[in-house]
């Protein structure tokens, strides 16, 4: 999936995260700011990378400001940001790459 333009999903509310994606030409550049980075930094990165891989996003600058979101929330925000950035207008593939 191609990241065609910058897009944002999520909020800065507690237990949510705000994900910003931008077109990038250098693989996945991941930047994380998290209230729980010491305990869950690696887990958050793992979930983000898995989600991007599932969506087939190869080149992206992705920035996440996390306020203690659970894995399911992180997945949903990353998926949403990427589809917005792709300008995708069709039916979303629920149960496909969106899980």
């Amino acid at each position: 999936m191609e990241i065609k333009k910058p897009a944002v999903a999520g909020t800065l509310e507690s237990s949510d995260c705000m994900v910003t994606v931008e077109p990038g030409g250098n693989g996945v550049e991941f930047d994380l700011e998290s209230a729980v980075i010491r305990q869950y930094g690696y887990q958050i990165r793992k979930v983000t990378m898995e989600t991007l891989e599932r969506l087939g996003v190869k080149n992206v600058k992705i920035r996440m400001v996390d306020k203690g979101a659970l894995d399911c929330t992180i997945k949903a925000r990353v998926e949403c940001a990427c589809y917005r950035a792709n300008e995708y207008k069709g039916y979303l593939p629920w149960g496909g790459v969106i899980r």
Binding site: V36, R38, Q39, Y40, G41, Y42, Q43, L70, D71
Partner: peptide
């Protein structure tokens, strides 16, 4: 629910 936290 939240996963096991990594030791700080």
């Amino acid at each position: 629910i939240v996963g096991e936290p990594r030791k700080v």
